[in-house]
Simulated scan of single mutants.
Amino acid sequence: MKSLGNIRRSFAPWADPSAKPFIAVKNVTKKFGDFIAVDDLSLDIYHREFFALLGASGCGKSTLLRMLAGFEQPTSGEIVLDGQDLAGTPPYRRPVNMMFQSYALFPHMTVEKNIAFGLRQDGMAKDEIAERVLQMLKMVKLEKFATRKPNQLSGGQRQRVALARSLAKRPKVLLLDEPLGALDKKLREETQFELMDLQQSLGLTFVVVTHDQEEAMTMADRIAVMSHGKVAQVATPAEIYEAPNSRFVADFIGDVNIFDGTVSAIRPGVVEVAVGEGFTARTATPETPALGNRAGFAIRPEKLRVTRRPPTDASVNASTGEIWDIGYLGDMTIFHVKLKSGQVVKASSLNAVRAVEEPFAYDEEVWVSFDENAGVLLKD
């Protein structure tokens, strides 16, 4: 059975028609005066899912998260969590906890007191608090830092304290608002995998808001790509990347080359689009557009081949071009190639060996080609 990309775990309740969502957002709209932050949005999130809300600033993702937390109330629509309508339920009565981007730690309290704060507010017994705090410290590997204050910790350690405090009350859902934004690149990458492992070991539902595509692609079971208060597509990371449902999603996620053309041939499961001077893109697709219709075709840079010799069949999925720019990134090399049609495309090549016998040069004439199942026909 073929899959679009690798999968982290065999977990897909959204594919089971009998599965009930743990969080159901039903036709929710949120207005601030005349401004519509969230626009008639519906969304299902399942128990034990790591779900990401991804989008540019102002798309409504943080507003939706704040409505889940209870800090904002929907103008219309409803939010149901584990069968309970959350309308009118204050934040402190909801079985959720939120980890803020700023971490919001108390600077005058030690690590252990920061973690224990919510438990004390709930009136938990002292011995139970001590046991729970110890569990949380072990979980985030900060036992040696229990008596330190936030200003004595690194950014990564403060992030772990905030996470431990958020999880100490054992919420049904953990909401994370740009949780890794303050960390440097290397630490952020390490923490992404730690969060994934932690979420699976605890068996909780995580909902994370981020504008970082790589972060969402790495951590989430599914991603909701948002734009102007609406959901553009909800799917697994591989489906979002390999089978975007629109031009917006294709362009928003990762690097992509998009061609505009006209449908020139149709066969069962295959469509050809004339996209430039002497350049026809043939792609396997279940879509059946009408002959002569305008169509878009998208293909990722890593799926383009740059060669000196023409492919075996140069009549489709191939074009001549001229190398305009070359970027060496260590693990890969990026080529900007101006095709015969005049369009400049981006291609990437993995540097699998240390030395290249005949490296490409600027202004060199080359062929750009790709396989039939490498690109995707765009609906709009």
Rank of each mutant, 00 (worst) to 15 (best):
S3N: 13
G5L: 07
N6V: 15
N6M: 12
F11R: 08
F11V: 01
A12H: 15
P21R: 02
I23F: 00
I23Q: 03
K26H: 10
N27K: 14
D34M: 03
F35I: 13
I36D: 01
V38K: 02
S42I: 06
L43D: 02
I45C: 14
I45F: 11
F50A: 01
A56C: 06
G58D: 08
G60V: 05
G60W: 10
T63W: 00
M67C: 06
L68E: 09
G70R: 04
F71T: 07
Q73D: 12
S76H: 09
G77K: 11
E78A: 15
I79S: 10
L81P: 02
L81H: 02
L81F: 09
T89Y: 07
P91A: 11
V96N: 09
L105V: 05
P107D: 00
H108T: 12
H108A: 06
T110E: 07
V111Q: 07
E112S: 11
N114G: 08
F117H: 10
G118H: 11
L119G: 03
Q121E: 14
G123Y: 13
G123W: 11
G123R: 11
E128V: 13
E128H: 08
I129R: 01
V133Y: 03
L134K: 13
M136I: 08
L137M: 05
M139T: 09
V140L: 06
E143Y: 10
F145W: 10
F145M: 14
T147S: 13
N151C: 07
N151M: 11
Q152M: 13
R158P: 06
R160V: 01
V161F: 09
A162W: 10
A164C: 08
K169Q: 12
L174R: 00
L174M: 13
L175G: 05
D177N: 09
E178G: 09
P179M: 02
L180V: 08
L183I: 11
L183Q: 09
K185V: 14
K186L: 04
L187K: 04
R188D: 04
R188C: 08
E189Q: 14
M196H: 00
Q199V: 02
L202H: 06
G203Y: 07
G203M: 07
F206Q: 05
D212Q: 07
A216W: 06
I223W: 03
M226S: 05
M226I: 09
A235W: 12
A238E: 14
E242C: 08
E242Q: 15
F248T: 04
I253C: 03
I253H: 02
D255H: 12
D260Y: 08
V263N: 12
A265H: 15
R267D: 12
R267G: 11
V270L: 15
E272N: 06
E272V: 00
V273A: 08
A274D: 14
V275F: 08
V275C: 10
T280Q: 00
T283C: 15
A284L: 13
A284C: 04
T288V: 15
R300T: 10
E302I: 02
L304H: 04
T307D: 15
T307F: 02
P311D: 10
T312R: 13
D325A: 12
G330E: 04
G330Y: 03
D331Q: 12
I334V: 14
K340W: 00
S341G: 14
G342T: 09
G342K: 06
Q343K: 15
V344K: 08
S348Y: 00
A355E: 15
E358L: 09
Y362T: 02
W367F: 15
S369K: 01
F370K: 08
A374C: 11
K379M: 11
K379I: 11
